[in-house]
């Protein structure tokens, strides 16, 4: 079965409830991509003009350091969004995202969307509230992990 790009974008949780007109806009800035295990979806320090709607496979958000394996911060999978840096200046990736298995995703040209939000603030608001929802969920999870809940009570 061949699924069209339009269907894929429409079915992704990120676009659920979004106006058809906006979904079409996103679709206009999007294309399908595939990553082999080990490929980087984005590289820390480089300019961030894309974000990914993951469809299949898992990717890890990680940091590289000399003399040790990449430090994985969290793993994300189908249905999630990878990349927020395209939204906020200086539009630069903060972390690496690496495919852990074959990853299928829709790459959305954030720079193109950014331009469109300039003339259509309502689009900007719609995008931002969707990104913020995901961002908040991830921030909360990260804060919970900082608590080191599994550390024994005697350790503090």
């Amino acid at each position: 079965m061949i699924t069209s790009l339009a269907q894929i974008v429409r079915q992704h949780p990120f676009t659920v409830g979004l106006d058809d007109e906006y979904v079409a806009l996103i679709e206009g800035c999007a294309h399908n991509v595939a990553f082999a295990p080990g490929d980087l979806l984005c590289r820390e320090g480089e300019s961030a003009d894309t974000f990914y709607l993951l469809r299949r496979g898992h990717a890890s958000i990680q940091v590289h350091a000399p003399g040790r394996a990449p430090i994985v911060i969290e793993t994300v999978g189908p249905g999630s969004v990878v990349g927020w840096s395209w939204l906020v200046a200086p539009y630069r990736w903060t972390f690496d995202a690496q495919a852990k298995e074959p990853v299928g995703a829709v790459a959305v040209d954030g720079a193109c969307l950014r331009q469109k939000t300039l003339v259509d603030p309502a689009l900007g608001y719609a995008l931002l509230s969707r990104v913020t929802a995901e961002l908040l969920a991830r921030l909360q999870a990260t804060r919970m992990r900082l608590l080191d809940l599994y550390g024994g009570p005697g350790e503090h």
Partner: peptide
């Protein structure tokens, strides 16, 4: 400090 820290700090300073 650790390289990760220096990378992040350097970028923040330049920004």
């Amino acid at each position: 400090g650790p390289e990760i820290m220096m990378r992040f700090t350097a970028r923040a300073l330049v920004d």
